[in-house]
Design a protein around this nucleic acid. Structure first.
Lengths: 210, 210
DNA sequence: CCGCGTATACTCGTCAGCGAATATACGGAA
DNA sequence: TTCCGTATATTCGCTGACGAGTATACGCGG
């Protein structure tokens, strides 16, 4: 994450958000985040929860309050957000919303190394990806439909609406790429290399070394 | 990264790709990757280069060859890819191309926590993002034009073409979201909450605690 | 031929991240 | 009453990532 935030783990932002709503103890945070399925859209590793909370406290963004105990359960520390914490949360959110950051989707990496695969295999894999994307899009649609039935407000579906849009976009792009590759229409565009050259390269390759 | 790969750092894949072309010593790998601007599309931290290479060697995916020295420079170890390495590289690439993985774009996280920002501020930030995206798209266009002039084949521009497509898609989605929010057209759709409720929530909030 | 800026080629220490383990408590069945 | 499965709540230790530092060598201007 764009470091310079006192605590850069996205889990920290989620924690601040929760405590902005109301004070909670750590385990309740984890439970609430799970209930709301925030882990769908934010990378949350609950193994890091306690250390993130400690650091937030050290930075003065949250503050430990009462230590309560229910029954014979181990006592649990309730945390509150501080004024500095509210400021940090809003500032962080504003930045995330307003400023595109460079991210490195694995697929983009794959594309930039695509010549490492023989072209026919590449096409095959792209086709597979297209189908898998179809499935993922359908799933989101199904969930949306369900949500509408339950009367869940659209505000709470923004993230997955966004994801759906991106998936559809990727799918369209891939389909187009496949077409181009199958037609080998690149041969016209390229001066140095075309699909035939690419294929030949792999045919010649003696499988590396050793 | 989807762990279970013997070395999961994407830098490792880049290294395998390079050695699949020809043997190299570490520093040359770094230089070549920089020349080809692979760092644009793959998350490469060259601080990890040597440890990644060590692990690749331990896993038998690459093999240290001659140690050459030019002039009085420290001697450099030339590495070769092994058969196992070629296999791993192709398998990894196939997986990356064919199988969408769950990634966590920061913007998606932001969207899922959007209610943490007052709605008018949210709109403002979204507008800013839209403009920044415009700028990024223009930049890619400029680079593409230049590349065409230099006669660089389209094959080498796939990654950034993909990125451009995604950026345009995001921009379109954002514009649409802004429109909806400004019209407050959500009020019709939502049963529990509308923009007015959202706004009120923030007006009431006493700034957290302490 | 001397000095210094830049390129070459690594090394190392720190630290966040996280999986997996731990330990206790509760509640219901038999 | 006792057992056991599940929920509660947290700790710990390893490991990979990476920034920042280091040290030598080359080349070129003066």
């Amino acid at each position: 994450m764009s470091d310079k935030r006192p605590v850069s783990n996205p889990l920290a932002l989620a924690v601040l958000s929760l405590l902005y709503e109301r004070p909670m103890h750590p385990y309740e945070m984890a439970t609430t985040l799970r209930e709301r399925e925030k882990a769908e859209s934010i990378k949350l590793r609950f193994g890091s929860l306690y250390s993130v909370i400690d650091r937030l406290e050290q930075e003065g963004l949250i503050r430990a309050g009462e230590r309560i105990r229910e029954g014979k359960r181990p006592e649990r520390t309730v945390y509150h957000i501080t004024e500095a914490g509210s400021v940090e949360m809003r500032d962080w959110l504003r930045e995330l919303v307003s400023t595109p950051v460079k991210e490195y989707p694995q697929f983009e990496a794959a594309l930039s190394l695509l010549p490492g695969l023989p072209p026919d295999e590449a096409v095959e894999m792209l086709e597979l990806r297209g189908e898998l994307l179809d499935g993922m899009i359908e799933q989101i649609d199904a969930r949306h439909e369900q949500a509408v039935n339950y009367g869940i407000p659209a505000l709470f579906m923004i993230e997955s609406d966004y994801r759906k849009q991106m998936l559809e976009c990727e799918r369209a792009w891939i389909r187009q790429l496949i077409e181009q590759m199958v037609e080998e229409s690149w041969a016209d565009i390229e001066l140095l290399e075309g699909i035939p050259t690419w294929r030949q390269m792999h045919a010649e390759h003696n499988g590396g070394d050793e």
